[in-house]
Simulated assay, not measured.
Amino acid sequence: MDVQLIWDKFIEKLNSYEIILNAEWRKIAGIPFIYVQSNAPSSEMENAIKRASGFAMRGKQLNCETIYVRSEQNLHVYRHRFYVPQQKMFCCGNMCEDCIRLRPNPFWE
């Protein structure tokens, strides 16, 4: 899975919304930030970020996290990252106590 493709889809979708004037992402000190220019209220902007994230992550086992950093006039900065969930998704065969085979499956009941 190429994270750059996910970021490209995310930024492209974010820029397609009418309330967003311009959106771009930059990596500073290894931490990804998104810079969003918008005149819309912050709640609408955060909803647009969530929808664009969902669109970019569709079909992948990823999560995202968005944290507000600062704003100046109509430029808003968020720390945004895509990450893989920290849970076992397969059986390694070592009979671990948190093995995925031991989880209850609602489809088997």
Rank of each mutant, 00 (worst) to 15 (best):
H76E: 06
D2S: 01
E97G: 06
I67D: 07
G54P: 05
F82V: 13
P41E: 13
Q37L: 04
C92S: 08
G54Y: 05
N15H: 07
D98K: 04
N47F: 14
E12H: 12
E24K: 14
I67T: 07
E24A: 08
R103N: 03
N47K: 15
F82N: 13
L14D: 03
R58Y: 09
R79P: 06
E46N: 01
F55V: 10
P41L: 09
R26H: 05
G93Q: 07
L21S: 01
F82Q: 15
K27E: 06
E97I: 02
K9T: 10
K60Q: 12
M89V: 09
M89K: 03
F90A: 06
P41G: 13
D2A: 00
W25Y: 13
E12Q: 12
H76A: 11
R81W: 06
Q37Y: 03
A29S: 08
F10S: 03
L5G: 06
C99V: 06
S16E: 12
E46S: 02
S53I: 14
M89A: 11
E109S: 11
R81G: 08
K13Y: 07
F55L: 13
Q86S: 10
N94C: 04
R81N: 13
F107W: 10
N22A: 14
N105D: 15
R79A: 12
W7D: 09
E65F: 13
L21T: 01
A40Q: 02
M57Q: 05
R51K: 14
R101A: 04
N63Y: 15
K50R: 14
L5T: 14
I19C: 06
C92V: 04
W7K: 09
V77Y: 03
Q86L: 14
R103I: 03
V3S: 03
M45I: 14
S42M: 09
Y17G: 04
A56R: 15
Y68G: 06
N39T: 01
Y78C: 05
E109V: 15
T66A: 12
W108H: 11
S38E: 01
K88S: 00
H76S: 13
Q73P: 03
G54N: 13
P106F: 05
A48G: 06
H80D: 03
P41D: 15
F33I: 01
L102G: 05
S42T: 05
D2R: 00
V3R: 00
H80C: 08
W108K: 13
K27M: 04
N15Y: 06
D8R: 09
S38H: 00
D8T: 14
A52K: 08
Y83F: 15
E18S: 11
E18A: 01
E24I: 09
V69M: 07
Q73W: 09
I28M: 06
C64R: 11
N94Q: 15
C99A: 03
P104T: 04
E65S: 12
S43Q: 08
Y78W: 15
S16M: 09
F107M: 07
E46P: 07
K13P: 05
I49V: 10
I67K: 15
G59K: 04
C92K: 07
N94M: 08
L102R: 10
A56D: 13
